[in-house]
Computed example of a mutant assay.
Amino acid sequence: MDYQFISEASNNRPTVLEDYEFNEHVRIGRGSYGQVYKARQKSSSNNSMTFYALKEVKLTSYSPSACREIALYRELKQRNIMDLLKVYFSYSAQKKPGNILVMGDGKERGICKIADFVMARTFHSPLKPLEEVDEVVVTSWYRAPELLFGTRHYTKAIDIFSIGCIFAELLTNLPIFASNPETVSQPIRLPYQRNQLDKVFSVLGYPSLSSWSDLKHIPKYTKMQKELMRSK
């Protein structure tokens, strides 16, 4: 995402402070996601008694709830429902995944660049077992479940899973499968990471043999099944 372009576009739009006057220390309402102020248009005459409800919603990342509320207000028109007149967006640069860079100057402005291939591996056809190269690949938060289960081969499906993790992080501004390092019981260099698997399954649900038939052939699947049975 070209944040410089977004910032420049935002500077060309009128801001809420340019259009309305209100006392930011006096709220007329407060909810779970924001607060409401009593405002008056600056363009109106000083004698105008027309006031507006100005709702401020502070977000640190993409919010489906806020988008849904705006969409509903735009669609609903009824005398007992507030009319939505305008939405103001205040630009703030969000942090992207650290190894995905966007060029900001020159001919390549806006081009996405991928950096850091420390844990990347090449694979060929026919596939070579990972133990012949390095059985630990991909940073743990972006590691596909089959790798965490100790699969013996690297495939394109592993990259697709990592790409999905990155897109989710771009939308939410948070790593979707970030696990707490304090709860990791195995060394990070081991391919089988029970803690990371639990994090993935807590979001996506536990896989079944009917939805993932090759699961029974992955080395550590049987081990995890036994651990689950003991925990019960």
Rank of each mutant, 00 (worst) to 15 (best):
F5K: 10
T15I: 00
E18D: 11
F22P: 05
E24C: 03
V26C: 12
R27T: 15
R27Y: 13
G29D: 04
R30T: 07
S32I: 07
Y33A: 07
V36K: 00
Y37E: 00
R40E: 01
N46Q: 08
N47G: 04
M49C: 08
A53M: 04
E56T: 11
V57Y: 03
L59M: 15
S63F: 01
N80T: 04
I81P: 01
L85N: 09
K86F: 00
V87M: 00
F89M: 11
A93S: 10
Q94T: 11
K96T: 05
P97W: 00
I100E: 08
L101G: 13
V102A: 06
G106S: 00
K107Y: 10
R109W: 10
G110I: 02
I111D: 15
A115S: 14
M119W: 05
M119R: 04
R121D: 07
F123C: 08
S125W: 10
S125K: 10
S125R: 09
S125A: 06
V136H: 11
T139Q: 12
T139I: 12
W141E: 15
W141I: 13
A144L: 01
E146V: 01
F149A: 01
R152M: 14
H153W: 11
D159C: 04
L170H: 03
N173P: 06
N173D: 02
P175K: 01
I176H: 02
P181G: 02
P181D: 06
E182M: 02
E182F: 12
T183P: 05
T183K: 13
Q186M: 05
Q186P: 03
P187K: 10
P187T: 14
P187I: 03
I188L: 12
R189T: 10
L190E: 13
P191A: 08
Y192K: 10
Q193C: 13
R194N: 13
N195Q: 08
L197K: 00
K199S: 10
Y206Q: 09
P207W: 00
L215D: 06
L215A: 04
I218L: 14
K220G: 03
Y221H: 15
T222I: 06
M224A: 10
K226D: 09
M229N: 08
M229H: 11
R230V: 14
K232E: 11
